[in-house]
Amino acid sequence: MTQNENLAALSAAGVSVWLDDLSRERLSSGNLAELVETRSVVGVTTNPTIFQGALASGHAYEAQLTELVSRGAGVDDVVRELTTDDVRNACDLLTPVYDATGGQDGRVSIEVDPRLAHDTDRTIAQAHELWKIVDRPNLLVKIPATLAGLPAITSVIADGISVNVTLIFSVERYEAVISAYLAGLEQARQIGRDLSRIRSVASFFVSRVDSEIDGRLEKLGTEEARGLLGQAGVANARLAYASFERVFGGSNDLWNGLKTAGAHVQRPLWASTGVKNPDYSDTMYVSELVAPNTVNTMPEKTMQAFADHGEVRGDTVSGTADEAQRVFSALADAGVDLADVFVKLEEEGVDKFEKSWNELLEATSQQIDAARQRS
């Protein structure tokens, strides 16, 4: 098998291609392995919505669920075992990538219970639990970038656990995430941990920003507002990358000391890259966000669209901060309350994952009841 040329070109430009999906069926059918071999996939991300969809469809989990029920497992235990088994198996599948890239890629993410998004101590405890259960060095534990999540990120990094920070919408919060990561590394260094073994990505959401801001621009209805449609998501990500370059590009004294001690940069990860507006190019959140030291985690539909007709036009991010800032200044001038946008997006993001998690628990509970009736 050979790699798709478009996705191979994206990888060569410094963008790690990760799949934003995981299921038992993908693993058992060989689909994930095929994507690694033909679509340059070097990582996998999951979230509660993805797991809810995976466990609700098909019969791939039926035998294991029945076995767990026979041992008296409750709904939380069943969900934990099913999901961590999938993630562990995906980690094993991607171990050759992990080894070949020195630990940079070959990563699989699993998220802490979204109901803990505003509870620092319980987030820390569950991050440790997931790290121990999966027991693979190429795991990333996903922690949301809520205000309660920030100190959890620092604590977990300090304990040597690699983290995918999720649900980042604003540049201000992204910069706080970077600070939390550096603080964790500094604590790890002070207690003698090997910093080279700690990795992190910062998942910056893109399409959801356009969806929210475009709705407000349409409501404003002015010619000025309509002229800004579809620009906010990419501009926001480009401003985030400028922050990444400022910190990790050599001008930050704390980072420079950590780098000397073996630390790795916290790569920006472009998340929510499936295009929701049919008027926009279905590959815009890939082709417009090409830059070194980044990750793009894509739904399979977006990945296949890029494989078919995506274009790599070189680095489309570096040096664009001034232009991106002009977009945001114009949005504010047009009447968009940007602070309110980002508060709403974070609240909705947490609520969406919590809703999916509750639906997952409910569906699993029903499957447990059915298994008990069969036995």
Rank of each mutant, 00 (worst) to 15 (best):
M1L: 02
Q3A: 05
N6Q: 08
S23W: 12
S23H: 07
G30E: 05
E34L: 10
V36N: 04
V36P: 12
E37N: 14
T38C: 00
S40E: 00
G43P: 04
G43V: 04
T46F: 09
T46D: 12
T46K: 15
P48M: 06
L55N: 05
A56Q: 13
S57P: 12
G58T: 11
H59I: 13
Y61H: 09
Q64V: 04
A73R: 10
G74Y: 11
T84M: 14
C91S: 06
A100T: 08
A100R: 15
A100K: 14
G103V: 08
V108R: 05
V108K: 09
I110T: 06
E111M: 07
R115G: 01
A125T: 01
A127W: 01
N138I: 06
L140T: 09
L140N: 15
A145H: 09
L147M: 03
A148R: 15
A152Y: 13
I157H: 09
D159I: 00
D159Y: 00
G160T: 07
S162K: 10
V165P: 02
L167D: 00
S170R: 04
R173Q: 11
Y174S: 06
A176T: 02
A176N: 02
A183R: 06
A183C: 02
L185S: 10
A188P: 01
R189S: 14
R193W: 04
R193C: 03
D194V: 13
S200F: 10
V201Y: 04
A202S: 15
F204N: 15
V209C: 05
I213R: 01
D214T: 11
G215R: 03
L217K: 01
E218C: 01
E223W: 08
E224W: 14
G227Y: 01
L228D: 00
A232P: 13
R238V: 13
L239E: 05
F244T: 06
E245Y: 07
N252Y: 06
L254K: 12
K259E: 14
T260V: 15
T260E: 15
H264W: 14
L269E: 06
S272D: 03
N277D: 09
N277P: 05
M284L: 00
E288P: 15
A291I: 11
N293L: 03
V295M: 14
T297F: 05
T302I: 06
M303Y: 12
A305W: 09
A305Y: 08
H309Y: 00
A321H: 03
A321T: 03
Q325I: 00
L331N: 10
A334V: 04
V336S: 14
D337V: 02
D337Q: 08
E346K: 15
E347N: 15
V350R: 05
V350A: 04
D351H: 14
F353P: 10
W357L: 02
E359M: 13
E362F: 08
Q366I: 03
Q367D: 11
D369Y: 01
R374M: 08
R374D: 07
